[in-house]
Design a protein around this nucleic acid. Sequence first.
DNA 1: CAGAGTGTACGGCAATGCCGTATAGGCGGC
DNA 2: GCCGCCTATACGGCATTGCCGTACACTCTG
Lengths: 96, 96
Amino acid sequence: MAIEPELVKSANEALAMAEGRLEPAAVFEPATVDVAAIRKAQNLSQGRFAERYGLPLSTIRDWEQGRRRPDRAAHLLLRLIEAEPDVVARILSSSE
Amino acid sequence: MAIEPELVKSANEALAMAEGRLEPAAVFEPATVDVAAIRKAQNLSQGRFAERYGLPLSTIRDWEQGRRRPDRAAHLLLRLIEAEPDVVARILSSSE
DNA sequence: CAGAGTGTACGGCAATGCCGTATAGGCGGC
DNA sequence: GCCGCCTATACGGCATTGCCGTACACTCTG
């Protein structure tokens, strides 16, 4: 897994913070979005998910495989898709 | 305005296509989103807009100044913000 | 007039977006 | 058994963006 080293690093930092050996970072960015989970909650394959929301399949793959992390706009969008899939889908189809 | 040359170019291409002098491009990407318009429709400054939707101010600037074009996820998000600002804002504040 | 708020403009690097291809497992049909 | 189809993992690779920082101009207000 490509992101593993980073996760380990983060975990160690969190530990250090908890033990008071390290100041909390100025930027708290969980940035962890489980795209696969959001997608599966809607019973969609990667392909159908991408198609449904007008996103490139390759980009979905990158996110799910942890090769790339969705930027802030994408992150926000994913949260919207998770919370209000119907609304998002509707807006999309309305002028595309 | 920085994007003007591109708009002019697109307009000429469209004209050429209409006159049959040019084949329609394989990729039809309007991709033009007037971020400033969407923002102003909500009477927000760039700063407040960015803050409201959890986006970096610098990124908003880039988009409005035409220096960068929002990618597909951002594009989609902007359309959502335009159509359903309240919904978007609510989802955001709900777990941030 | 100093200072705060807003917006334009742009340098710059790391990182992502997005395309393509190779590989592999599950499944129904012939 | 074999083939084709769907689905998903993995990754090479380049153009483009994301996002940070800084400089400059304008307007309003104390």
